[in-house]
């Protein structure tokens, strides 16, 4: 049997979800220039949010998602104003330590609330699948891809067509000139950060019905996010999308063609990060941290 069509379909579906995962990271970095090391925890909390609502009220994750996203956005904005705004002018190392610390606190909070056991949400579509010629398509992944595509397109539309979206792009491009346009920078920073958390939460809701939810899942997500950014370029949203699909294809190919590949697929992101940092130590991340 020819594996290529199946590989392409699987990689595309995964790439869409990775795009959603990384686009929030790219948005908050592009605007505030702070790398949010706790972005994986926004994803983790989104997943637990979906789990909790599903178990407690039997509400489908897809229905809970808008509410969870709004909650994530508000919490993100508050977190930004309280914790991150005060360190905007501090050295990058301080910012990294701060967001990293926030991530650790959230991990431990999740550990206390939900225990270390892996959780999962199983709506009817989670393990459904259908055949399309020779290709088997997972229903859960297809739905995840669809939601991711809608959200990513909505973000593009917002950036392109709305007053605040335009201001966000202006701020990412030319800080001082954006200030001169009368853009309230602190407010826009908080908004961009809140939106990025909301996108992280949405990613978590999707992941909640695709695999196990654990308090430490955020770390793997962060590594994947960085691998994507290193591949695609930091601060460029189009680059982030390309990077997401590159990583998805690489991981899927490894899981298909390497013996016991599913385990190795998880290592692709680490390996990518490692290689780029060794071969191009002044690479994209290096520059971002230095400037």
């Amino acid at each position: 049997m020819d594996l290529i069509p199946q590989l392409i379909v699987d990689a595309l579906l995964l790439g869409g979800i990775y795009t959603l995962m990384v686009i929030g990271l790219a948005l908050s970095f592009g605007v505030t220039r702070v790398i949010n090391f706790a972005h994986g925890e926004a994803v983790m909390l989104g997943a637990y949010g979906a789990f909790t609502v599903f178990v407690a009220f039997g509400v489908d994750p897809l229905i809970a998602m808008p509410v969870l996203m709004v909650a994530g956005c508000v919490l993100g904005m508050v977190l930004f104003k309280v914790a991150i705004a005060p360190v905007l002018k501090a050295p990058h190392v301080n910012q990294i330590l701060l967001t990293f610390g926030i991530g650790l606190v959230l991990q431990n909070l999740a550990l206390v609330i939900w225990s270390p056991d892996g959780r999962s949400v199983v709506p009817s579509y989670a393990y459904s699948s259908f055949e399309f010629g020779d290709v088997v398509v997972s229903g859960g992944r297809l739905i995840g891809f669809g939601i991711a595509a809608v959200l990513v397109l909505a973000l593009f539309f917002w950036l392109k067509r709305t007053e605040f979206g335009r201001a966000t792009r202006a701020l990412a491009e030319q800080h001082d000139a954006a200030v001169l346009m009368g853009i309230n920078v602190n407010q826009m920073y908080a908004l961009a950060f809140g939106l990025s958390v909301a996108l992280g939460v949405a990613t978590g809701v999707i992941l909640s019905f695709l695999g196990a939810i654990t308090p430490f899942m955020g770390f793997h997500i962060l590594v994947k996010g960085f691998a994507i950014i290193v591949l695609g370029g930091l601060g460029s949203i189009v680059g982030a999308v390309l990077g997401a699909f590159l990583l998805a294809f690489a991981e899927t190919a490894v899981s298909y063609y390497v013996p016991n590949g599913t385990g190795w697929a998880e290592a692709v992101a680490f390996l990518t990060l490692f290689l780029v940092l060794v071969l191009r130590p002044r690479g994209i991340i290096g520059q971002a941290v230095a400037d």
Binding site: R166, R169, E173, Q174, M181
Partner: peptide, 17 residues
């Protein structure tokens, strides 16, 4: 200090933000 990747009209719109 124009916004280089934004169009001319987007730059002008920003002027009236």
């Amino acid at each position: 200090k124009v916004f280089p990747n934004l169009t001319v009209e987007e730059n002008l719109y920003l002027g009236s933000f």
